[in-house]
């Protein structure tokens, strides 16, 4: 079995090396891609989709299948992290709290009542991390700006570099910044693991659902022109809006997968206390 594997790798490698020589040069104007494909997209993108950014229209419209499965791959990465790292929650016998003004640490046994959501008491465990008021307030100041910029990146993908993947990453980074500057427990209380998982699946669902809606309306999968009667525009603008809908799905999936992976990685799957 090992031999077969090695032979396969050797064969694929040899074929790659042999045929890599026959590839057209980088940026060769006479290569098939440059003589047939590129001119089509450069000439027709504006008329077909009314999106000035050719990259966005190729990514989300002409090549929509590929991007849909890219989003699925991201969801799969989140799921893989979840299945590999997540540990079942354990009932802790004793928990420790620190009374912040006096610095006294108290131990609460199994039967005792623990103080909840208190400013005065702070939960202490093996992975306790200090948090600092300067860092906290600076990140509180910056996070709204980061999120607004992320939404701008998502919405402005039609005209400038950007789109769902980039905007989703920035949105996820804002939440991760919150988790680093406060702590993981506070963050999980705001965006739970379950909602991160549901949102990441919902992002892929929005993408695939848009495609399926086109199918229901009697055209081919991911042909956004079919959405024109629903959106109340002509076919060209419907393709432009379809790209935006799909980008929102991608952003949702990427954001929540980033958060989900961070939760699992930073707390070693226990979701107690992160970095």
């Amino acid at each position: 079995m090992k031999l077969i594997g090695k032979l396969t790798i050797f064969l694929c490698g040899t074929l790659l090396i042999v045929f890599a020589n026959k590839f057209p040069d980088f940026g060769d104007p006479h290569s098939p891609a440059a003589t047939h494909l590129s001119p089509y997209f450069i000439e027709h993108t504006m008329a077909d989709t009314s999106v000035p950014n050719i990259v966005t229209s190729v990514l989300a419209d002409y090549r929509g299948y590929d991007t849909m499965f890219e989003t699925t791959v991201i969801l799969a990465a989140g799921l893989a992290c979840f299945f590999l790292l997540r540990l079942p929650e354990e009932e802790e016998k004793e928990i420790y709290f620190r009374h912040v003004p006096t610095g006294v640490t108290i131990r609460i046994e199994e039967c005792g009542a623990a103080p909840e959501d208190s400013e005065v008491f702070q939960r202490i465990d093996s992975q306790w991390v200090p948090c600092d008021i300067i860092i906290r307030s600076t990140s509180r100041l910056l996070i709204p700006f980061i999120q607004i910029f992320a939404l701008y990146v998502v919405a402005h993908g039609h005209h400038s570099p950007g789109g769902g993947f980039q905007g989703g990453v920035v949105l996820g980074a804002a939440v991760i910044l919150f988790a680093i500057s406060h702590n993981l427990r506070t963050t999980v209380a705001k965006i739970g693991e379950k909602s991160a998982a549901i949102m990441s699946a919902a992002g892929v669902f929005i993408y695939a659902g848009t495609g399926a809606l086109c199918l229901v309306l009697g055209e081919s999968f991911l042909n956004y022109g079919a959405l024109a009667p629903i959106l109340g525009t002509d076919r060209v603008m419907a393709r432009s809006h379809g790209i935006l809908i799909v980008e929102i799905g991608v952003a949702l999936a990427v954001m929540s997968v980033m958060i989900w992976i961070y939760y699992n990685l930073s707390s070693a799957g226990k979701q107690d206390e992160g970095l």
Binding site: P130, D132, I134, I135, T138, S139, L141, L142, F145
Partner: peptide
């Protein structure tokens, strides 16, 4: 403006970690 807010904060955070 944003770098003036974030850069000293980042330096502060790293120094804080060093002291701790």
């Amino acid at each position: 403006v944003f770098v003036f807010i974030t850069s000293p904060t980042a330096t502060h955070a790293i120094v804080d970690a060093g002291v701790r």
